[in-house]
């Protein structure tokens, strides 16, 4: 099983790295999905089949789909690719890479002393379920409340539109002007009418 773990891990890391550097949004998203799938395999190898399944279904399946919808909706074409190319100068990477490198080194240092991975026994869904209904039941309740808040918020935010006709500024990426007359305009309703 071990080589599978490492291969899947490598796939995840590489595809994340690739994702970072893509210019096209949709390409990046697709790479991200691949990364998540790799992580899911890793979970399975580690003996956590439940979360492996969850990762695929919820994370890659729902959340990333949302992202894909959003990315599609913005209809960012060649123009945005150009912009991204402009923005991602090589020099820009230095600082954050340095910072992240330090963090990485710290984490490696932290984990160095610990014992090697065994991962023999799998912790199945049954155990997880029992724990959830037992000690962590409060967490479950809180999570459900959080999700409710998320739903309501998303609906609300997506529904109402902020009307500030006098402050529309010109941008250099998209030369669009939105003339917002009404206040109840569904998000994305006039999207197709906009030009890239």
């Amino acid at each position: 099983m071990e080589p599978v773990f490492y291969i899947a891990g490598a796939v995840a890391v590489i595809s994340t790295a690739l994702m970072l550097t893509r210019l096209n949004v949709v390409h990046a998203l697709l790479y991200l999905i691949v990364s998540f799938l790799g992580i899911a395999v890793d979970f399975f190898v580690l003996g956590a089949p439940f979360v492996a399944a969850l990762e695929v279904i919820v994370y890659a399946g729902a959340i990333m789909v949302l992202f894909v919808f959003a990315g599609m909706m913005f209809n960012l074409g060649q123009q945005s690719v150009e912009t991204e190319r402009q923005w991602l100068t090589p020099g820009i990477w230095i600082g954050p890479v340095l910072l992240a490198g330090v963090l990485f080194a710290e984490v490696v240092y932290l984990l160095e002393g610990s014992a090697a991975y065994t991962g023999a026994v799998a912790v199945g869904p049954k155990e997880v379920g029992m724990v959830l209904f037992g000690p962590y039941v409060i967490g479950v309740e809180l999570a459900s409340m959080l999700l409710l808040a998320g739903v309501v918020g998303a609906y609300h935010l997506g529904f109402l539109k902020i009307v500030t006709p006098e402050t529309q500024h010109d941008t250099d990426t998209d030369e669009r002007r939105t003339d917002t007359g009404g206040d109840l305009v569904l998000a994305g309703a006039d999207e197709p009418a906009r030009t890239a």
Partner: peptide, 16 residues
């Protein structure tokens, strides 16, 4: 964001 990240890294370093 960069400042926050740097701060977090520093903090971890201090703790470590």
């Amino acid at each position: 964001m960069a400042a926050m990240a740097a701060g977090a890294v520093l903090f971890v370093a201090v703790v470590l």
